[in-house]
Simulated assay, not measured.
Amino acid sequence: MIDILKLSKKFGTRTLWSDVTTTVNRGEMVAIVGPSGSGKSTLLNCIGLLDKPDGGEIRYEGKDITRFGRGETRRFRRDVLGYLFQNYALIENATVAVNLGVAVKPRRALQGATGVSISEALDRVGLAGREEEKIHHLSGGEQQRVALARLMVKQPALVLADEPTGALDHTNATAVIGILREMSDSGCAVVIATHDDRVRDRCDAVFAVNENLLVA
């Protein structure tokens, strides 16, 4: 699904990483690991078109997405990508239901197509019946689980997750990893930047960004 070819990124005179080359297939969950400051999140942001590499290519189904224009970028994010941000990227003064509702694809809503419903997604992440609560009333861990439920509703082909268990206790972290694993098993490609051994151990492969090494 995603082919990364000789990717490089600099900050000023410092080379963050160079010649990064790897592939993530459909139905595969890959952990990106490395020490703090090695550029794990930056690599995710390049794949998600939130940052631009200085060299190389990122190909999605054969197309170099780093060359996408504004419209192609918007469609890629809307139709293909799901992102689990460290800061959750939720609308804080809106309800849980509103935050999940924006993830329902217009085409699916118009056609009445089946998918994971808002109530089902919230039940899966342990927040059943809390649709009308405002986001700013929730704890950090609860907000992370709302963001995960939003991914389940959206049903993206590619998920990028940045330290998805960082704010969670052991029980909730295990649940989040399990849901990401289920999404991967259903055919979604999942790429996770993490320093959590529990996450790494559940992945199909581990990519050490500082060593440019992929280990199955």
Rank of each mutant, 00 (worst) to 15 (best):
R75H: 11
C46H: 04
G56F: 00
T73S: 14
I58F: 07
P35Q: 08
N45Y: 09
L81C: 04
G62K: 07
V96L: 02
Y88S: 10
D54E: 13
A94P: 00
A89C: 06
E28V: 00
G34V: 10
K40W: 10
V102L: 12
R75W: 08
N45D: 14
L43V: 11
I47R: 04
L90D: 08
V80F: 06
L81D: 01
G69L: 02
M29Y: 03
P35R: 07
V104A: 10
Q86P: 02
F76M: 12
V102S: 07
G39H: 00
T73D: 09
E72T: 05
L50C: 11
D51Q: 12
I65Y: 02
G37P: 02
M29K: 00
T42S: 15
R59V: 09
V30P: 01
K40E: 07
I32Y: 01
V80I: 15
K40C: 09
I65M: 11
E92D: 14
T95P: 02
S38Q: 10
V96G: 02
N93W: 02
R75M: 14
S38R: 06
T95L: 05
L100R: 01
G39C: 05
A103P: 06
I58L: 09
F76L: 07
Y88L: 07
S36R: 01
S41W: 01
I65N: 10
E57F: 01
E57D: 09
G82W: 00
R75N: 14
R59I: 12
S38M: 07
L49I: 14
N93M: 03
L81R: 00
N99C: 05
T73A: 08
N87W: 03
A103I: 11
K63R: 15
R75K: 15
A94N: 11
D54H: 14
T73F: 00
V98S: 09
L90N: 09
G71T: 14
A97I: 03
R74T: 15
G101D: 09
E72V: 05
R67E: 13
L44A: 09
R70E: 15
F68L: 13
R67L: 14
Y60L: 14
G37N: 09
S36G: 08
N99F: 01
D64R: 08
G101K: 04
F76H: 10
F68A: 13
G82C: 06
G56K: 00
V30I: 13
I65T: 13
I65F: 08
V33L: 02
D64G: 12
A89R: 05
R78M: 09
S36A: 11
D64E: 11
L50Y: 07
R67K: 15
N87K: 09
I58G: 10
A94Q: 14
